[in-house]
Amino acid sequence: MVDLRARSAAVVSVAPRPVRRRGRFTPLFFLAPYLVLFCLFVVVPAIFGGWISLHEWDYLLPGKPFTGLDNYLALFDPDSRVSGDFWTSMKATGIFTVASVPPLVILPLGVALLLNRRFRGRTFFRAVFFMPFVLGVAVISVMWRILLDPNIGFVNHLLGANIPWTTDLPWAWISLVGITVWWTLGFNAVIYLAGLQDIPAELYDAAGVDGANRWQRFVHVTLPGLRPVALFVTTTTILASANMFGQSFLITKGAPGVETRTTIMYIAQEGLRDYRMGSAAAMSYVLTLVLVAVSVINFRLFRSRS
C-alpha cells in the first residue's frame, strides 16, 4: 500500500496535469449508468420503504397515518395480529436456509470437480446439470407437485409408499429443499467450474513435484484457490434461500397450516394481497437486518481463514 502511494506520487510528478485531470472523472463516467439505476431502483426505494414502514400505508387510501415504530413493535408483541405468523414464517425461512445452503454449496463443488475432468460427453453433462436452472419456478413447481402428490403421485407409485411429500413435516421440507437443490445446483456448479479453471496449472505441478497426493492437492491447492468463488457462492446461496417464495407458494401452499409459509411469502400476502404495506415494509426491514448480520458473519468466517 505504501508502495502504491509512493508510485502514484511519482506518476503525478512526471505526468502533465491536464491529462490527469481529464482522467479523474473517467471512472465516474463508467460508473454513472449503473449508479443512476442503483439509486433509482435500490437506494430510493430502500429509503422510501423505511418511510412506509413508519406508517399504516395503503397507497390507494387517502389517509396514511404515521404510526412511528408501531409496525416494528407489533412484530415483537406476542398478542398482536402479526407476530405469531411473522415468526413462524421466519422459522420456516430459517429451516429452509439452513437445510438448503450446505447441499447447495457442497454438491455443486463435487459436480464441478467431475465436470472439470476430461472425458467424452463432458459438454453434454455440463448442459444436463445446468438445464433445470433455465426452467421457471412455476414450471418446476407444478411438475414436482404432481410428481410428489401423496396419493396419486408418480414418486410414491414408484416407491410403493404413501409418503406425504407435500402435506406433512418433515417431508414437505425434504421436498422443497430437494427440488431447490436439483433446480439451482447447476448454476453454482458453473461458477465453481469457472473458479477451477482459474487456478493456475503450475500450482498443481509444483504440488506434484513436492509429492502431494490427489487429496492433498485438493486441500492445499484447489480449496484455497476457490476461496473467493466459494465466498460468492455461499453468500448468494444464503440470500437466495432466504428469499425463497415460489416453491412454497406453488408446491405446499404453506401447508401443513402455515408451517412452510416463508417470510417473503408472508410479506407478499401482507403487503400485496391485504394492502398493509407499512407492516409488510417493517417485516422486510427486520428480515433485511437478519440477512445483513448473517452476511457479515459469513464474510468474517471466510476472511479469518486467510
Binding site: F41, P45, A46, F48, G49, I52, A268, A281, S284, V292
Partner: peptide, 21 residues
Amino acid sequence: LALGAGAGSALLLSACGGGGG
C-alpha cells in the same frame, strides 16, 4: 449485497407506490 437484499423487498412494496389515487 446487504443493500440489495433489503432493497429487493422494499422495491417489491414500493413499486406499487406513488400517487395517492
